[in-house]
Amino acid sequence: MRSDPHVHAAGAALADLVLKKTGVDVARCYQCGKCSAGCPLAAEMDFPPSQIMHLLQLRDLPGFAEMALRSHTIWLCLTCEICFCRCPMELDIPKVMDALRHEALARGMVHPKAKDILAFHRAFLDSVRVTGRLFEMGQVVDYKLRSGHFLQDMLQAPWMFWVGKLHLLPERVRDRRALKRIFARTRRAGEKRP
């Protein structure tokens, strides 16, 4: 692929970054489509997994890499691993999706429809950063504030409390400072953690 005439002069293609971060060489994908056939959410995606791989294969033909980063697909991927399981070239597609999510975050290219999914993940990590363990009640409140879905599951919480599944106080790690240091050291560029 080094001799590819389409390589953008400005720098490495997204495919090269993916190779570096995941060890997956997208050029090896021969577009059989098994990943898209097995993906439980392919019908909801703007590009099924095989097309994401194709966008990466087109390297720096203007705009294609960005289409992959701006896709809804990368946020809908549930990491169920069925694509990787069935890929005849044994390409770790879920790992590629992870790398694309990280890159989309860093470049501020997150698909607008992914905002609730992202809000949930951020609320989750907020909770873990503070207490070291997930505090479900705190996470849900945090998620509501981030997403604006205040009325969602209003009846679920009292029921959960009633059957003893929802705690009002968090479980906490003793050495919370150690957890905070881990979070501080792993903070990535472009990822805001208020």
């Binding site: 992870d98 993940h121 990590l125 792993t186 990822e191």
Partner: peptide, 12 residues
């Protein structure tokens, strides 16, 4: 870290 960590931050 569950799904959130690997979605947002590879080191975490």
């Amino acid at each position: 870290g569950a799904t959130a960590a690997h979605n947002l931050d590879p080191d975490l």
